[in-house]
Amino acid sequence: MTSPERAPLTRNQTLVFDALTDAGGPLSAYTILDQLREDGFRAPLQVYRALDKLVEAGLVHRLESLNAFVACSDPGCESHATTAFAICEKCGRVTEFTDEKIAARLRRWSKGTGFSPRTTTVELRGVCRDCRTAA
C-alpha cells in the first residue's frame, strides 16, 4: 500500500484508501463518509483530511470534473509529470494512463509561456469501448 519512503498511513487514511480501492471507481467525499460511519467517521472534515494526505502521498487522485476521488492504479505515477484519466459517462469506469508525448507537449508549452505547473491532470470524458459496442 505504501512505499518505504512514505510515512505510514493513519487509521483514517487507511480506511479511506481501502474504501476507494474496494470501490473500483470514483467516490465523492460524502459517499466515503456514508460508507465509513460504522468505523467512527462523523464529519466530512475527517474524510477530507485523509483525502488531502492521500492525494499528497500520490495514492489517490482527485477527478475535478466529477468532484470525486479515485485510488491510484499506477504505483509509479509519482514519477510521471502528467496523469490522465479516461472517464466513461455511461458505466463510470475511470482508466488512469500516462502518455509521454502529451506530457512533452505540455512541458514545451509551459516552458515557452513561462508557466510553472505544480501538477498536470488531463481528464477525457466520453464512452468506453465496452459501452460503445454494447449499444
Rank of each mutant, 00 (worst) to 15 (best):
E5G: 02
E5I: 06
E5C: 02
E5K: 12
A7Q: 13
A7M: 05
Q13V: 00
Q13H: 03
T14Q: 00
V16K: 02
F17K: 01
A19W: 01
A23S: 14
G24N: 12
P26E: 13
L27G: 05
S28N: 07
S28D: 08
Y30W: 07
T31F: 02
I32K: 03
I32S: 02
L36T: 07
E38K: 05
E38N: 03
G40Q: 10
F41S: 04
R42Y: 06
R42G: 14
A43Y: 15
A43V: 11
L45V: 14
V47H: 01
Y48V: 04
Y48P: 01
R49H: 11
A50L: 05
V55S: 04
E56F: 04
E56L: 01
E56Y: 06
V60D: 00
V60Q: 00
L63G: 03
L66Q: 06
N67M: 08
N67C: 08
V70S: 03
C72E: 03
S73P: 05
P75R: 10
G76C: 06
G76N: 05
E78I: 08
A81M: 04
A81L: 14
A81V: 13
T82A: 14
T82K: 10
T83I: 13
A86M: 09
K90A: 07
K90C: 07
G92Q: 11
G92Y: 12
G92W: 11
R93L: 09
V94P: 06
V94T: 04
E96M: 13
F97Q: 03
T98V: 08
I102T: 05
A104C: 07
L106V: 12
R107S: 09
R108S: 09
R108L: 12
R108C: 08
S110G: 12
K111Q: 13
G112T: 07
S116I: 08
R118Q: 13
T119D: 11
T119A: 12
T120W: 03
T120F: 05
T120V: 14
V122N: 09
V122R: 13
V122S: 11
L124P: 04
L124E: 04
L124H: 13
R125Y: 14
V127F: 05
V127Y: 10
C128R: 09
C131F: 11
R132S: 12
R132Q: 12
R132F: 13
A134W: 08
